[in-house]
Nucleic acid binder design. Sequence first.
DNA 1: AAAATAAGTTACTCAAAAGTAGAAAAGGCG
DNA 2: CGCCTTTTCTACTTTTGAGTAACTTATTTT
Lengths: 207, 207
Amino acid sequence: MARTAIDSPWKKEAERKQERALKREAVLAAAAHVFSEWGYHRASLDEVARVLNVTKPTLYYYFKNKEAMLFACIQHGLDRLDAAADFADDARASGMERLVAYLRRYAAVIDSDFGRCAVRISDTELSGQSRKKVRRIKGVIDRQIRALVSAGIEDGSIASSDPKVTAFALAGALNSIGQWPPGEASLPGVKLADEYIALLVQGLAPR
Amino acid sequence: MARTAIDSPWKKEAERKQERALKREAVLAAAAHVFSEWGYHRASLDEVARVLNVTKPTLYYYFKNKEAMLFACIQHGLDRLDAAADFADDARASGMERLVAYLRRYAAVIDSDFGRCAVRISDTELSGQSRKKVRRIKGVIDRQIRALVSAGIEDGSIASSDPKVTAFALAGALNSIGQWPPGEASLPGVKLADEYIALLVQGLAPR
DNA sequence: AAAATAAGTTACTCAAAAGTAGAAAAGGCG
DNA sequence: CGCCTTTTCTACTTTTGAGTAACTTATTTT
């Protein structure tokens, strides 16, 4: 008779590892929520713990320290922004179409706790190596946007004199969505993002 | 023989009051510089004092506490943004022309320490009455932009479906100029602002 | 010259929040 | 059961920086 997978102690260990990973993620989500609401310094770990119905030392069982939590939050947010590129890889679409698809996804990410962390909290809060990593990912994202702008210029779907500045301006405009205090908006995030993007695409001047 | 104005004790008192006011302004400028560079919480008053070649208690001779300094910085920045409206009162100009003039001035203010303080530091750092005042001024500025957008819609120089959202998006896009770390820009602030504004006016789509 | 006032300093207190040591549950496993 | 590992807690220590008390020095006024 074969041993059942359920009875295997190895399985149990994997399960526990998974539970630990889930709890770690829960800590991270709570941290992202509190950080993005209060800012990094005003956010206390006691508050993060309270949200999770645990005590502060428990958090330290999952993360080395407060900065490690912030780094993980920002990195996760940036990774999701980076992954927005997957929405822009339709080879048949024009540069403009791909850019707009990218930006819509980008805006959706920013309208989340991790996105707000990535966009609103200065990377100068991080020290040394972490800051370097964050800056690298930000550079990757910037180049993604720039590449889409350039592609649009090439195929004639976008007019821009300077892809670098345009990319920064686009990111900056969308990032400002993350500044809206939740509730102030009075518009669902997606609707708001579409209005922003429409402005950026069409411009203020009548056509 | 008449007593000379120079010997008048009253004159001297006025002079001293003026010197005190100048010093207070110097403290404020130093605070704005340090706050906008490090953020409110990471900025220490010891650092502000060091910049001025004095010691921390001296600062308390000019301001009640750290929050009062922040409030004054933000208020001053917002007042200058508000005053940008003076650049938009040419009655012969179209709504679009007046809006662009306003935005150019707005961007110039943001590219200063006080502007960066006003735009980057969350008003949730302030408590009670101060926050209320700041929010009021922000509301005034928002309505100024919105009014210009509406005027442009009326006279046909601006195309927009929603002045409220458009005003927010414009402010958000320009505010992001304040996020550029000084030096990263590699462009003089004015040039950068003009590129931003050109994008907002013309849009990405070719005409 | 003496008194009063302004301006600034040294040397502290105090509070808040990060981070830690070590005990205590909780649960699996021989 | 009794041992071992994992997880969490209580009860601290430590650090940082805001804020203050009380003294010193310079200046002005009477």
